[in-house]
Amino acid sequence: MNADEFLDITDVVCPMTFVKTKVALEDLDDGQILELRLNDGEPIQNLPRSLKDDGHKILELANNADGTFTIFVEKGGLT
């Protein structure tokens, strides 16, 4: 899948995972796609849920099998 922007948040923990993702999405237009690399555990459990609550759509989720996941988020995809 082609993304408009890529963000790696494996170097931060909650709530900076959400803060960085939120700000990255703000810089995109509705319909654009953010590729996000995040850690297993708390980030993958909570972040997709928070993004859905904010009206963004998770298009694809992949386990990278190295303790990280990659998700593709469509800005405003649920609004």
């Binding site: 709530p15 900076m16 959400f18 803060v19 960085k20 939120k22 700000v23 703000e26 810089d27 904010d54």
Partner: peptide, 20 residues
């Protein structure tokens, strides 16, 4: 916003009425 600012103002940015 710099990384430092993202962290300093994180509790603001999380608010839906504020954000980055």
């Amino acid at each position: 916003l710099t990384n430092e600012q993202l962290e300093r103002y994180s509790r603001h940015i999380i608010l839906s009425q504020v954000g980055g």
